[in-house]
Each structure stands twice: as C-alpha cells, then as structure tokens.
Design a protein around this nucleic acid. Sequence first.
RNA 1: CGGGAUGUAGCUCAGCCUGGUAGAGCACCGCGUUUGGGACGCGGGGGUCGUCGGUUCGAAUCCGGCCAUCCCGACCA
Length: 564
Amino acid sequence: MTRLSQLLLPTEREPPADAEAVSHKLMVRAGLVRQIGSGLWSWLPAGWRVHQKVVQIIREEIDAIGGQEMLMPVLQPAEAWHRTGRYEIDELLKLKDRKGAEMVLAMTHEECVTTHVAQVVRSYRDLPFSLYHFQVKERDEPRPRAGVLRTREFIMKDAYSFDRDQAGLRASYDAYATAYARIFERTGLEWYSVESDVGMMGGSAAHEYMAPCRAGENEVALAPGYAANVEVASAQAQPVDVPAPLPAPEAVQTPAATTIDAVARLLELPAGALLKAFPIVIADDRGFVLVVVRGDHRVNEIKLANALGSPWRAATDGDVSARLGPPGFIGPVGADVTVLLDEGVDSEGGYVVGANQADRHLRGVKPGRDFDFERVDVRVVEAGDSVGGHPITIEPAIEVGNIFQLGTRYSEPLGATYLDEDGAQRPIVMGSYGIGPARIVAAAVEQFSDEKGISWPRALAPWDVEIVALGRSGSGELAAAEGLYRDLRAIGLDVLLDDRAAGPGAKFADAELLGIPLRLTVGRRSLDSGRAEAQRRRGLEDVEGGVALDGAAEAVTELWRTLP
RNA sequence: CGGGAUGUAGCUCAGCCUGGUAGAGCACCGCGUUUGGGACGCGGGGGUCGUCGGUUCGAAUCCGGCCAUCCCGACCA
C-alpha cells in the first residue's frame, strides 16, 4: 500500500500529552506506533516498514558470518529456567497452563537454544556454529519509558554461538563484532561500541553498542580512543589541592559534622581533601571492609562488585558502630578492618578522615603511613577526568546491541557438552549477541529529527521517495504524479504517493513529519517545464532544478544514492 | 518499590476552587466554495466525565478506596 489516500497513517498535530522523549513524540505523531498499555506498543504500517528495514540489514550481515536463522517459542516450560536459576528473576513473566504446569514467557532464549543444542551436539566435530532468530521478548519491566525505548514486550535479534573452547569463542565473538560494525554502519546511525559490565550473565567479556542521543538511559565516558559505559569506566582523577601530611594525625573537633560537605565547610578545605569511608559487608568470608574514596568522588557499585569478585551490601549502622565508631565519623586510622583505597586517592596527601569517635575527625592523615590499604579502582568517573592525557566527556546513549562471552554459564546447568578427540566430555563454550531493532528505529529518530519531524537515514526510511501531488483530482498535476509514481516503482524504488484530497500545506507538513529522505513535488510551478521539484529531507535542501519527468527514474535513483 | 502528577469526545485541553442542562479548538460526516505551506461557509454526529463507594434533594465538581497512564529516582538478565 503506497498511496497515502489508502494508507493507515494516523498523523497527529499534537504529541501525546505525557510524552517526554523526542522519539516518543515523533513516532506517535508520524503515525508509526500506537500504545496499547504501559510499555506495550503496536507498530502501524509505516513504522513496521522501518522496523523491517532494520531487521533485513541485521539478517543479511548475520547470515554473512554464517549465522543460521531459526525460530523458538516465547511460551516455554519453566523447567530449564529453574535449572539455570533464572526462574527467580523478577522481570520474568511466569504463568500456568490449564494443566497447572509452570510456564514462562521468555525474556531471552538461552535456556531454549541450549536445551536443543544439548540434545543435538555430541562431538567436537559438530562445533562450532551459531544460531539466531528474531523473536518477541517479554519482560515485566518495573518502569517502561520513553515510547519504544524501554518496553515490556519487544522484538530482539538474539544470536548464540557454540564453540569447543575459549579460543573458539573469541573467534566467534570477533566475527559478531565485525558483523555488528557493518550492521550499525549500514543503519546510518551515529554509534560506537563500549566496554560494558558482564553483569549477572557471568562470562568474561562484553561490549555494548551505543547510539548517542538525549533520551538514552546509559552514560558513556568518551575520550580519543576510549569509550566505556560509566558503569565500568576508569580514568585518571582530576587533581585536587590536598595539604601536606602532618607529622602525625591530629584530632580536630567537628561537632555534628557528619557529611563530607559539612566537614569541608567547617575546616575550609575542598571536599577532595577529605576521605570518604564507605563501610560494606562482602558476601564471602572477607566480611566487613572499609572502602575509601576521595571526598569529592562517589563509589561505583558495579565496579566495586567487579573488584571484589563477590556480591556485597552496605553495612548497617549497627555493623558500623560495632566495628568502628559512630556513623558519620568513621575512618581508616586505627581501624581493625581491611581498607580498600581507591586509585583516585593520592597517597602523598595529608587528608581529613573520620576519627571513629563522635564529633571528631583527624587531619594530616597519610595513607600507607597512618593506615594500611589495598588499592582498588571503584569510583564513578566524572567529566574532566582523563584517559591517556585526554579529558573525558560523558554523554547519554541508548544501548542498541550487545555481545557477551557467556562461557559455560548455560551449557553446564543444561548439560550441553561434547566429546573431544580424547573422548573427554566438555561443556560447550557459548556467546550471546543481541540487537533491539526498535531501539535502532527510535535512536534514528532521536539523532536526526528537527523541529519539523523525522529525517530518516535512507537505509531505514519506510519509503525511498515521497511524491507530493498538488492540484485537485482530475487535474494534470495528479495525472503527472501518477505517471512519475509508475516510473519510479518500475525500477524498484519504494515510493509513497500523496494522492490525498488535502491541501498543499497539510501534505508538506505530513511529508516533513514522516521524514522520507527525498520528496518530489508535482505541481503547476514546474510541470509546465516538464519537471518535478525535489527536496532532501535532511536539512530541507532543495535540489537545484528538480528532476525532469522524462527519464525521472534514473535521475531519482542517482539522487537517492547521494542521500545520507 | 519510593517520590510527583494526570485521568472529561479520536487528539490537545477548559469546566472542578464556589455542587444545579457537559464545553472549546482540531479531527470526523453532508453540501457548496477552495488547491503551492496545516483553507472557508452552512448544517450535523460523537462523551458510562477512569472505576467503585460515600456525602447530598442533586456530584465531572466534595470525601475515600481501587484501577490506569506518565515523569523523577531505585531497578534494568
């Protein structure tokens, strides 16, 4: 259906009252998507065309590295999820069938694909290979937001690689990284890959593919040659003026000053001249430890968990009082606990720390002399910190894809093993690779829209060309537009013809809102000279002279190739 | 899960404070005019005022419960 007069394209002049994100507003206004519940969206015909364009790009590039497309069900027995321990995840939707059997709606497909592979693969000769599908994912998100950016149901391309060992996995991982670079390059998005947290997935390495945009939920630290999710980023701290150490720690009265701010103000020092003591309890036998960062820094909980290699919790006031002193006045000096000192703390300085006594701090404290410590890197990086001598910037981005080296996280509990040349049974080494097409669509809207509407990269546009036919029905303009429409379609262009009875203003406004990269206008201004006007959507630039109707197909194809 | 807000026509909203016939603009239908930047005239259709309960002679309006949706935060295999 490519005649606007017959297309279900419900454009709106006003954005939804409660929409905040640009992509949310524009995708609804342009008639691409409609909401049916919180985090639940339908894709209308024009929007679905964009989604399908993304899907096709992904399919071609994953096929090119030997991925095999298949399809697995969303509704699954709960058993495998019990075995992998993921049944306990809150986001997993659980239900029972009519016989009372426990079922789940899959949030990804590791359990299913690994179960099949466990049944099928017997020998190292069966490896390696990789499988993928495009399938709906269900997640009981605590807070869906920003239109299609974070939803409870969405289509994901999820791929899984199966190798005999870590070296094989690395090769598969690299192949996917290469394919992903081609995919995101082809979409026309601005993007980059970043180091990311391996999270509860386990495994040894992970990268995320990020599209920078305002509505993004992630923060990325960037410097020349460096890009990392702030969750895991490391950088050189900005210097701060710290007094020289005193010959020995000296007590100062700090009545009721329980915060870094209050102490800094009282002693007229920058916050960075203080040390912040963050007491935690580690889940393993290390127990209670004191994490110490510079006063102007914050502890990064993910980096801390990774540095510890174990889950942890913040210590309670009771723990703190029993082991150190009154909360608000604790510090590392004289404490009978392990001290983990963040790399942002210069050990030559003389810092102010809590004295482990009420209303009292110590100053002139030198790490190493006045307390023992182990070095860790557990702080949140900040804009202006540096990497390789370059200051970093931090910008929001939307995660559009990720690649994970899973290892044996799923193959072991699900019994996916093979026999090697020596007849030894070994677990299959897996990787998993996701892409969210809907997020690519939304990111494109975020990155390239202007005050008039969307401006699609040509690779994602729902149609290649929009023809705006002016003049009333029965006029020569409409007839000429119909002829142009036939000619362009004949050579394989995707063409949308605005043949509605609406006025010119409404047609132009809708064309700009929908954002098709090339607009051809057929009206009496240019028809007399046998031409159609042409305008690029990006920047709304007119093409000098337009295109001649005679031989238009070739001219338009050439023009289309020059578009972003 | 914590904080904030909102539910009135397809959309954006007014009306609520101070209880008494449910409104506007856009959209839609009919007729006519109009066709290069969201046209105009005339006529018309459309709403359990989220829901349940309470107060009252009378509730969109006051009170309470619930539900839904959005925003901020937490969370985000």
